[in-house]
Amino acid sequence: MPRSHSHLPRLFVEADLGAGGILTLGKDQSLYLAAVLRKGVGDEVVLFNGRDGAWLCRLTGDSKKSVTLAVVELVAEQTKPSDLWYGFAPLKSERLDYVIQKAVEMGVGTIQPVMTQFTQVHRLKTERLSANAVEAAEQCEVLSVPLIAPEIALGHLLDGWQDAHGDRKLIFADEGAASSSPVVALEQLRGQRLGLLIGPEGGFSDEERRKLHALPFVVPISLGPRILRADTAAVAGLAVIQAIIGDWR
């Protein structure tokens, strides 16, 4: 029976990974392993970089400033990056962290902040978004960390959508639509490249909704009879896409 490595700490690194390699971690990750987790020489961890799969590594040096590891063996093949695009209006503090983490867990390939008329947050720390994506990938054994795309105004996103995304359809969670099942609308998109757009807490403005409904590549869907918070709508929208026409099938 294959040995399980799910109990081992997992860390994302930028360096290349391959059998026989020797890796030296930076100060923060070294401190985390040696001081926080109290890992020492001979202990094992799993490293991944989004390119080479997941590798079992063994500590050969445990300085709190500079942990060194020997790359031992491949324990999981690299997964193909997801093509699912996810755009959202940024939320405040912990709820923003939650949205990023859940998008990673739900199999998104690109995460793009979209500034709308009622967006609550107008200054984003890209480093924090990336750190949250990496942390979620480490915790959930995701090998392909999503790309964090630069923030963009909704109008610019829609005007340049076909140039940037080609024939990708944009699923629009329309809080103003009559309650209905999204199943039929989504089944018609089977096999196509997809994006999901979730609005801010206050919803899209009337002008924004009119523009979205007028565009041929936009597919409005309802997420049911209840008003959902933006972070809940994100999880619900990604879940129905993955369950009906995505990688849950």
Results as ranks from 00 to 15, higher is better:
residue 8 L to N: 09
residue 158 L to G: 05
residue 120 Q to K: 13
residue 121 V to P: 09
residue 24 T to E: 08
residue 176 G to K: 07
residue 70 A to R: 14
residue 89 A to I: 02
residue 247 D to K: 13
residue 65 K to T: 11
residue 33 L to M: 10
residue 75 V to T: 07
residue 191 G to D: 00
residue 117 Q to V: 08
residue 122 H to T: 15
residue 96 L to F: 09
residue 155 G to P: 01
residue 93 S to A: 15
residue 152 I to H: 02
residue 23 L to E: 05
residue 30 S to K: 00
residue 48 F to R: 07
residue 63 S to W: 03
residue 81 P to D: 02
residue 199 G to N: 04
residue 99 V to I: 10
residue 161 W to T: 12
residue 138 E to Q: 10
residue 212 L to C: 15
residue 112 Q to Y: 02
residue 169 K to T: 07
residue 5 H to Y: 15
residue 93 S to T: 13
residue 220 P to A: 13
residue 237 G to W: 12
residue 208 E to H: 02
residue 32 Y to E: 08
residue 30 S to E: 01
residue 196 L to V: 10
residue 97 D to K: 15
residue 241 I to N: 06
residue 100 I to M: 04
residue 209 R to I: 01
residue 215 L to E: 09
residue 21 G to I: 01
residue 124 L to N: 11
residue 43 D to A: 14
residue 71 V to Q: 14
residue 196 L to C: 10
residue 38 R to H: 01
residue 233 A to Y: 07
residue 186 L to I: 12
residue 148 I to R: 08
residue 137 A to G: 11
residue 71 V to G: 05
residue 42 G to Y: 08
residue 147 L to W: 04
residue 76 A to E: 14
residue 208 E to I: 02
residue 116 T to M: 02
residue 28 D to G: 06
residue 127 E to N: 12
residue 73 E to L: 06
residue 15 A to V: 04
residue 89 A to D: 03
residue 197 L to F: 12
residue 249 R to A: 06
residue 231 D to H: 14
residue 181 S to K: 03
residue 124 L to E: 10
residue 114 V to D: 01
residue 164 A to K: 15
residue 103 A to T: 05
residue 68 T to V: 00
residue 102 K to Y: 01
residue 26 G to T: 03
residue 206 D to H: 13
residue 14 E to V: 00
residue 151 E to M: 15
residue 233 A to W: 08
residue 20 G to L: 10
residue 191 G to I: 04
residue 240 V to A: 11
residue 166 G to Q: 08
residue 208 E to C: 04
residue 21 G to V: 03
residue 188 Q to H: 13
residue 83 D to L: 10
residue 59 L to H: 10
residue 52 D to A: 03
residue 132 N to G: 00
residue 91 L to F: 02
residue 57 C to K: 09
residue 41 V to A: 07
residue 221 I to S: 07
residue 120 Q to Y: 02
residue 30 S to V: 02
residue 192 Q to F: 00
residue 226 R to D: 13
residue 84 L to V: 04
residue 91 L to V: 10
residue 48 F to T: 03
residue 101 Q to C: 02
residue 56 L to K: 13
residue 235 V to K: 07
residue 87 G to C: 07
residue 21 G to H: 04
residue 24 T to S: 12
residue 27 K to D: 14
residue 205 S to N: 06
residue 34 A to R: 01
residue 94 E to R: 11
residue 12 F to V: 07
residue 37 L to P: 03
residue 143 L to W: 12
residue 159 D to N: 15
residue 202 G to D: 05
residue 56 L to P: 06
residue 209 R to T: 00
residue 99 V to S: 10
residue 181 S to L: 09
residue 4 S to I: 11
residue 175 E to C: 00
residue 105 E to I: 05
residue 112 Q to V: 04
residue 30 S to F: 01
residue 5 H to V: 15
residue 101 Q to R: 15
residue 206 D to N: 13
residue 74 L to P: 02
residue 34 A to C: 00
